[in-house]
Computed example of a mutant assay.
Amino acid sequence: MRHRKLRDRLAGCTDWAEFGGTMHADPILGGLGNFDRNVIDQPEGRYEACTLRLFHPDTGQWSLHWVDGRDPKIDPPLYGAFEGGVGTFFGEDSVRGRPIRLRFVWERPTLATARWNQAFSADGGVTWETNWIMEFSRA
């Protein structure tokens, strides 16, 4: 994985850090979900994280549950679906104590690559700041 991340979020920052990492994903529950393990090599130091993704056949939506090794708890889930090959997921969180909307977008530009980006909105989704982009390629 190649990461590109804003050094400071929702602060008008335009300085991006670039770094590497790895991710390994496995299907679970007969295809109704997957689980990934990430090693993220940020300039501030390496850490591990994981994601549990579950498909809900009754709604056609996925839920995404992130666990960060630096603060091991399950973050509030994001919910969404894939349309036209693009997955868009929304959730609620907070940054420095203020509530935000959170958006993840998953794309697959080629059969061997994928792209993910994260954006925050501090105004209820009127405007979005993309603050993290990951480019994936198969090992």
Rank of each mutant, 00 (worst) to 15 (best):
M1Q: 08
M1N: 05
K5D: 09
K5E: 15
L6I: 09
L6R: 10
D8L: 10
R9G: 09
L10D: 03
L10H: 05
L10P: 01
A11M: 04
A11E: 10
C13P: 04
T14I: 12
W16Q: 06
A17Q: 13
E18H: 06
E18T: 10
F19D: 03
F19H: 07
G20I: 04
G21Q: 09
T22G: 12
T22F: 03
T22L: 08
M23H: 08
M23T: 13
M23D: 13
H24R: 14
H24S: 13
A25R: 02
D26S: 11
I28P: 06
I28H: 09
L32D: 02
L32H: 08
G33F: 10
G33T: 11
G33N: 11
G33D: 11
N34Y: 15
N34A: 12
D36Y: 01
D36I: 01
R37F: 04
R37W: 06
R37I: 01
N38C: 07
I40N: 02
E44S: 15
G45M: 08
R46Y: 01
Y47N: 08
E48V: 07
A49M: 05
T51L: 11
T51A: 08
L52R: 07
L52Y: 08
L52W: 10
L52A: 09
R53H: 12
L54N: 04
F55L: 15
F55H: 14
H56M: 04
H56E: 10
H56D: 13
P57A: 13
G60P: 13
W62V: 01
W62E: 00
S63C: 06
L64P: 00
L64T: 05
H65E: 06
H65C: 05
W66R: 07
V67F: 10
D68K: 02
D68W: 00
G69K: 03
R70Y: 04
R70E: 07
K73H: 13
I74Q: 09
D75S: 15
L78E: 07
Y79A: 01
G80L: 05
A81K: 12
A81Y: 10
A81M: 09
F82S: 02
F82T: 03
F82D: 01
G87R: 10
T88C: 03
T88E: 04
F89E: 01
F90V: 04
F90E: 01
G91K: 03
E92S: 14
E92R: 14
E92L: 13
D93Q: 13
S94H: 14
S94C: 12
S94W: 12
V95F: 07
R96Y: 09
G97H: 09
R98L: 09
P99C: 12
I100Q: 02
L102V: 15
L102I: 12
V105H: 06
R108W: 07
L111I: 11
L111M: 11
A112S: 14
A112L: 14
A112K: 12
T113C: 14
T113H: 13
T113D: 15
A114F: 02
A114E: 05
R115G: 00
N117H: 15
D123T: 05
D123H: 05
D123E: 03
T127W: 00
W128P: 00
W128Q: 03
W128D: 01
E129L: 03
E129Y: 01
T130H: 03
N131I: 08
N131F: 12
I133S: 00
M134W: 04
M134H: 05
F136S: 08
F136W: 12
F136P: 00
S137F: 05
S137P: 00
S137L: 06
R138S: 12
A139M: 12
A139F: 12
